[in-house]
Write a protein that binds this DNA or RNA. Structure first.
Lengths: 130, 130
DNA sequence: TAATGTAATTAGAATGATTCTAAAACGGCG
DNA sequence: CGCCGTTTTAGAATCATTCTAATTACATTA
């Protein structure tokens, strides 16, 4: 594991999760001013392929990187923001159901966060009022 | 619902799932030669926001669109290909666990498809042989 | 230590999916 | 018919990510 790989892994694991490549780049640059965005992507991809970090794709926003430790996510349908949530590990039961070996699973629960819910309500109020 | 929205919804629902915007565009163009890719995206986004279709983001490949009817997906870690899988509906138990209203959930099981597994094996064989 | 090969990094261009903008066309309604 | 909001068009623009080629660092062997 190279110097940058180590540092990037460290950043992903200690961040409050759901960090973008750009944010990682900014953080890394504080201690390594010469580093380049491509290096960040290279290492993120390597770490991801080696199963050391998670990559989370959400529609319409840049990919997020996350610690590997088991946990799931709430995704707001309005703003796309992610929130951690700890649910029971379902790997075994899922594997039993599908009948092929499962490396991992990615579970996103779609909901409306408070902010977006409030926003929708005010919109509807003003629109609905005659 | 406009003409194009209807047609695009029809295409998404009758396709064998996991279709890209580009593929929808190609298919739509057969009957509507004048149509433009932006129109496809406009309508897909509207349909998605209205909850009439699903949008599936997988790392590194263009977004896929899918019928809304409940089902889950296997995603190959190697090639990213999606396969439908029917698992029990877990909406209720998930909602009970998280304690907030869940609109829907998106479950992807990560595995190695047969092709990628075979490819990895041959690679490892040749690499491992002295 | 020098030489060598392999992998990592850099710089910057290129790609490609998606969105945006402004203008034109459409459709319903008074 | 003429007006207004919505939809579509055309094409430029954006922006995350990848690619290419050149350079550098590292590890190993001679």
């Amino acid at each position: 594991m190279t110097k940058y790989a180590k540092m990037i892994l460290e950043i992903v694991e200690t961040s409050r999760s759901h960090i973008t490549a750009e944010q990682i780049f900014d953080q890394l640059r504080r201690t390594c001013p010469g580093v380049v965005l491509a290096t960040v992507y290279n290492n993120l991809n390597r770490l991801w392929q080696d199963g050391l970090i998670r990559k989370i794709s959400v529609e319409g926003i840049p990919d997020r990187y996350d610690r590997i430790a088991r946990h799931d996510h709430l995704v707001c349908k309005g703003c796309g923001r992610l929130v951690d949530v700890d649910l029971n590990d379902m790997t075994e039961q899922l594997q039993r159901q599908v009948g092929v070996p499962i490396l991992s699973y990615d579970l996103k629960l779609v909901y409306w966060c408070e902010d977006c819910l409030a926003e929708r309500n005010t919109e509807n109020d003003s629109a609905g009022a005659p």
